[in-house]
Amino acid sequence: MLIFSVFKTLTDQTVIVELKNDLLITGVLKSVDQFLNIRLDNIQISDEVRHPHMIAVKNCFIRGSVVRYVQIPADAVDTQLLEDATRRGSRFCYKRCPKFPD
């Protein structure tokens, strides 16, 4: 859920999505859902000579499960905020989870 929220704050940023078939797709992040499926606009495939398959595709929906990495602009994230949210998130989870009572 935390990562989903982070991605939501990254909408309209240019990102590079690397897939598990080694395809690299640059585009503007338009939306993301809870499965981390991604919608990219204005896409560009790196190495279009080797991968001309998507030359006529301008925007796309990428299934979250086939993503290896997403490269994001460093100035678009507040790392301090991220770390705090991660620490809070894990404690919050323990509190609510009956297996880990306080």
């Binding site: 080797r50 001309p52 006529a56 929906f61």
Partner: peptide, 22 residues
Amino acid sequence: IVLIGEIDSEKDASTDLSDVRA
């Protein structure tokens, strides 16, 4: 499914698939 992309029909029509090797 890995990806679903919307095709720009003009761009697709202007690409001659018989020239494409990949």
